[in-house]
């Protein structure tokens, strides 16, 4: 630790400066992602309505894809399979659940609370090329993964070039 870190006002200023950079990066990423993802249905999912309320559980979601499938994963530590409800309606995948606070009632006496609890619903609009019949979901070690196979057309077909 540098000596100047021990001077309170000095440290405070440095923290403010540090916070500027990630914000600037976010804006840059936002523009970049906007143009890259413009035609992706989850482009608007970046808006997180409850992000300002850390007391409420709002799971983080990743969406990835291979040639064969889309894959939605969500971090749901502390939930069991029975606490989670995954449904699909009109091309929107909804993940619902509740993170329960089992130890509060039985014990009390919180010293530190960083984890968040409560019910949530996350809606993920799916691209049209998803085969809705083949969707599978599994839950392991607090992570939910939903596998959404792409339709045959989405795999792409190779076009033969005929010789003249």
């Amino acid at each position: 630790m540098a000596v100047k870190d021990l001077i309170p006002w000095r440290k405070k200023r440095r923290e403010e400066e540090e916070s500027l950079l990630p914000a600037a990066r976010d804006v840059r990423d936002m523009f970049q992602d906007f143009f890259e993802d413009m035609f992706r249905p989850w482009a608007l999912m970046r808006m997180r309505p409850f992000a300002e309320f850390p007391a409420r559980f709002y799971p983080d979601i990743d969406v990835s894809e291979t040639n064969k499938e889309y894959r939605v994963t969500a971090e749901l530590p502390g939930l069991t399979k029975d606490d989670i409800d995954v449904s699909l309606q009109e091309g929107v995948l909804t993940i619902r659940g509740e993170k329960k606070e089992e130890d509060r009632e039985e014990k009390g006496g919180y010293v530190r609370v960083e984890r968040s609890y409560g019910s949530f619903a996350r809606r993920i609009p799916l691209p049209s090329e998803v085969n809705e019949c083949g969707i599978e979901a599994d839950f392991k070690n607090g992570v939910l993964s939903v596998h959404l196979p792409k339709t045959e057309e989405a795999h792409g077909t190779r076009i033969e070039i005929k010789g003249g």
Partner: peptide, 11 residues
């Protein structure tokens, strides 16, 4: 997973 590409990342 081979060929896995990230589309949307929150974590």
């Amino acid at each position: 997973v081979e060929g896995l590409k990230l589309d949307h990342e929150e974590y």
